[in-house]
């Protein structure tokens, strides 16, 4: 089970998003809040480390990491496929 607060904690350690992490709403665009391509790679790596998963290439799109909700769904999908 992945919660939005789990995601927010990880966003808090992301250089670009750290100052605003706690104010980001579920569907706010992270890219509009200053996330750039390198920031999103760092975010992906942090999520892989935190949840012990590896995102397959087809999940490595802008949309998969564009909002807290999208991240939660992406991580849940990978966790489920690992469990299955």
């Amino acid at each position: 089970m992945v919660t939005s607060d789990d995601i927010r904690t990880i966003l808090g350690s992301n250089e670009a998003l750290a100052p605003v992490a706690q104010q980001i709403a579920e569907d706010d665009s992270l890219f509009d809040r200053g996330l750039d391509s390198f920031g999103s790679v760092q975010l992906m790596l942090a999520l892989e480390e935190r949840f012990g998963i590896e995102f397959p290439d087809e999940f490595l799109t802008r949309r998969s990491f564009s909002t807290i909700r999208a991240i939660r769904e992406t991580v849940s999908a990978v966790l489920q496929s690992v469990a299955a």
Binding site: S37, F38, V41, M44, L45, E48, E54, F55, P56, D57, L60
Partner: peptide, 14 residues
């Protein structure tokens, strides 16, 4: 340098 960052997460196998 940009590609290098992206390759930190790309899985390959194309």
């Amino acid at each position: 340098a940009n590609t290098a960052k992206l390759l930190l997460v790309q899985k390959g196998g194309g």
